[in-house]
Each structure stands twice: as C-alpha cells, then as structure tokens.
Design a binder for these strands. Structure first.
Length: 291
DNA sequence: CAAATTTGACCTTA
DNA sequence: TAAGGTCAAATTTG
C-alpha cells in the first residue's frame, strides 16, 4: 500500500518538466518536413507517451478510488449503450447463430505492447479493417468451451502510434482459472486490489462471479497468442510489422481494476486524453494530481 | 497428438 | 451490399 514515493511530488515535477520539453521539441519538429524529422517526431510521440503514462501511474497512487480506473484505461463502454438490446433474435441453428455483441460492457485500453492481462485467450480471427493500416485480431477466452466463459477481446495496433496496441474487452470472465495464479500470489502488495472491490459501487455488473471481470490482478506466466514475456521477440501473430522492442515495463498497467470503470467520471476524461493528443494532458491530469 | 493459430468462407448488421 | 465479427478446416506448434 505505501508504495508511494517519499518525494513523489518531486518526481512528478520532473516528469512534468521533461514532458513539457518533449512537447515543445515535438512542436518544433512538426514544423519541418524532412523524413528524418518525421522519424524524430514519432520518437517524440513515444517519449511523450512515456511521460504521460508515468504521470498517470503516479496519479494512480494518489488515491485508491482514482487508482483503479486510471491505469491507462480508455473510454469505458463506447458502444451503442442505448439500443444494445434491439436485436435479440438469434438466427438459425446453423453456423452463424452467434448473436451480436452481448452487452455494452466494453473497455478499451492502449498499451505499449500486447499486455498480458492474466487471462488465457485464444485467437479466433483476424480481419483487415477498412481504412485501418493494421488488422484487428479477435480473441476469446480459452475457457469458452469448457466453462462457457463469454469474454472476448479485440486487439489492433493503433495507426497514429504504431507502438501502441488498442485492446477492447467485451464481456466478463466467468471462468475460474486455477492454474496460473498460485505462484504469483506470494507477492502481496498487489492484493489490495481485491479489497478494492469493496469500493465498487456498481453492483450491477458484478454478479457474483469473478471479481475481476476483465483482468486478474496478477500477470500470468504465459499467454497464448501474444506472449509478451518471451525472450527476444514479440510473436507476430497480429502481423506486427514493427519491431517494437519495447521494454517489458508494461507491468505498470497491471493493477487496473475494472470494477470502477463505469462509476467514475475520470474515466472519460482520461480516455479522452489518451485517445487524443497528449498535449492536453497537462490540464486535466495535473488537475487530478492536484499537488 | 492435443492445443493454438491461420485464414477464407460464412453470417449479421448497418 | 459492404464491412465487420465468427466459424472451422487446415496448418502449425509444443
């Protein structure tokens, strides 16, 4: 719990300065057209992202409530939340008897690499999306068959920033996965995320099942499809053309607790920030940091 | 050999 | 009808 840095404020300050500089530099670079500058500009984007994400993480520690939704989560349920239940008819008994997306419980998140969210996923499709540079991959829970777990997710590389993947989660995990947790549980500092459940207001979506609808609190050892922990390269299952030799530092995003994603208004704010340009980050984020 | 991925066909929705 | 989501046979992987 007390993992707050003693001089956290200073850190934030420094980060802020750094990001400000990076921001200015980016501005400068954007005025030139040469190719090398384009590359540099791209780099700047990444640097800015790092700053921003770090600030977010720090902001997470600020308060428990805030922490849960801010782990770089993006836009809670964007779907057509209103008319979601308009097409209930499930077709013939044939192959395409799948119904449309079940509920509006969706969640997006951008991560530097394909993050391991602690669940076992099985890839079941990949599509080229119109006007999108990168294909979209479809995953369902590995336990769809044996436990009828309905959770799915889609992963797609973000066009504006190919170093990031946008993952959209649908449905909740109803599966119980016993095999992957044990060894990691030893590490206690994470466990408060369980108690955080108690803070969750929306009993609506937590219907007696797993406490973390989309994620478990712990990183898993392996994940099908996209293992992020493997040694030298990231598998190109999603046909990533880029090298993305990111560090494995994505762990900092792991503590997110979904249960709050629709209960807070911060979620929207943050999502807008991250989804859009990072330049606006200062205003809102720093407000939330309010130091 | 079982489980995971790939990939084109099939299905639904707008 | 086009675009996106899913299925499932073929293929790959461990």
């Amino acid at each position: 719990m007390e993992n707050l840095l003693p001089n956290r404020r200073k850190v934030i300050d420094e980060l802020r300065k750094g990001r400000e500089c990076a921001s200015q530099l980016q501005e400068l670079l954007s005025k030139n057209e040469s190719e090398s500058e384009l590359a540099a500009e791209n780099l700047m984007s990444n640097i800015l992202s790092s700053f921003s994400n770090t600030l977010l993480v720090l902001a997470c520690n600020e308060s428990e409530e805030v922490s849960k939704m801010q782990g770089s989560w993006i836009s809670p349920k964007s779907e057509d939340s209103e008319e979601s239940c308009k097409s209930i008819y499930m077709a013939k008994d044939r192959r395409g008897c799948y119904k449309r997306r079940r509920s509006a419980e969706t969640l997006e998140r951008d991560t530097p690499i394909q993050i391991d969210d602690g669940h076992a996923w099985r890839k079941y499709g990949q599509k080229v999306i119109l006007k999108a540079k990168f294909p979209r991959s479809y995953y369902r829970c590995t336990h769809k068959t044996d436990q009828n777990c309905q959770a799915t997710k889609q992963v797609q590389k973000i066009q504006e920033d190919p170093t990031l993947y946008r993952t959209t989660y649908y449905g909740q995990h109803t599966c119980r996965n016993f095999q992957r947790a044990p060894e990691i549980i030893l590490d206690s500092p994470n466990s408060p995320s369980d108690t955080s459940m108690l803070l969750s207001f929306d009993t609506a979506m937590s219907s007696k099942q797993d406490q973390h609808p989309f994620f478990s609190s712990f990183p898993s050892i392996k994940q099908e499809g996209n293992h992020i922990i493997k040694e030298d390269h990231i598998p190109k299952s999603n046909d990533d053309y880029l090298v993305s030799n990111q560090s494995s530092s994505s762990d900092y995003l792991m503590s997110s607790d979904l249960t709050t994603f629709q209960s807070s208004d911060h979620g929207d704010v943050i999502s807008d920030i991250l989804a859009g340009s990072i330049g606006q980050l200062d205003d809102v984020l720093l407000q939330q940091l309010q130091f």
